[in-house]
């Protein structure tokens, strides 16, 4: 049976982890390779790097980071942040990324998703949907890391992205992100019911119960979480054991 995935997400800036594990046992907490290896060994089902590097010139650094990670970690790797061109995607895939997550570029030009999925296959094209609630059962897309409002309806945009070839949706609730009060389950429910591709729930996980809710109530195929793992509140193993005890299918080593 296919298992629900748990995906730790690391924020990387200029080749250094700025939001990641903060454990004493790490020699260099800023080293993305060391962090990824740690999560690989602790049973993460995939690892996600979000490149928050500010300038275009510095983007070449993430390629080196991905290369070094792929040399050591034999677990699927998704990389997002600043992906704007077909060439950006090609470089990341060649470096060792398995999936590339696209946000702003997908909103600016929906045909970009079509080109990318035709070129590299839907399986490696993830569209990152950053949504904010505007009224009852209505959500809007934000870009540029949640700073810019677009006026685009999140549900329609997601459906269109899938139609254009997105193989997976990384759905982040801007309202819930950082609050540790749980995922936006209404949004998740609507999106997972509207499309056939897998959805990764993101934004708001603060407890293990939140992970359970995202998967069982929200219908997500995977849950992305940062702080609950980074700061040692829970291990991936604890999360999986908890989920298994509540009859959620997870991979336990």
């Amino acid at each position: 049976m296919l298992k629900n995935r748990i995906i730790p997400c690391l924020d990387v800036k200029n080749g250094r982890v700025v939001k990641g594990i903060n454990f004493l046992e790490l020699k260099d907490a800023g080293d993305p390779v060391e962090q990824a290896t740690f999560y690989d060994k602790s049973g993460a089902d995939e690892i996600c790097f979000l490149d928050i590097t500010a300038t275009h010139e510095e983007r070449a650094i993430i390629i080196e980071t991905v290369k070094k990670t792929a040399d050591k970690c034999f677990v699927p790797l998704t990389v997002g942040g600043g992906v704007r061109t077909i060439e950006d995607i090609r470089k990341l895939l060649i470096a060792g990324a398995d999936k590339v997550s696209i946000n702003t570029a997908a909103v600016k030009d929906p045909l970009f998703i079509k080109q990318a999925s035709q070129k590299f296959g839907s399986q490696c094209i993830v569209v990152a949907v950053d949504a904010k609630k505007t009224s009852n059962n209505k959500w809007e897309i934000f870009t540029h890391g949640g700073r810019e409002k677009t006026g685009i309806d999140a549900i329609e945009f997601t459906k269109k992205s899938v139609f254009n070839g997105a193989g997976e949706i990384l759905l982040t609730s801007m309202d819930k992100d950082g609050t540790k009060t749980g995922y936006d389950l209404d949004l998740l429910k609507i999106i997972t019911k509207s499309i056939q591709v897998p959805v990764i729930a993101s934004g708001g996980a603060g407890t293990l119960e939140h992970l359970f809710e995202g998967l069982k109530i929200g219908g997500a195929s995977a849950v992305l979480a940062a702080s609950i793992f980074h700061y040692g509140k829970f291990t991936i193993q604890q999360a999986k054991e908890y989920l298994a005890s509540k009859d959620v299918q997870v991979r336990i080593k």
Binding site: L2, N4, G167, Q196, V197, P198, S221
Partner: peptide, 16 residues
């Protein structure tokens, strides 16, 4: 060939 919408496509992730 998926008929039941609870099965997503791509078949993505860890399976036995």
């Amino acid at each position: 060939n998926i008929k039941d919408s609870k099965f997503k496509l791509p078949h993505m992730g860890w399976n036995e």
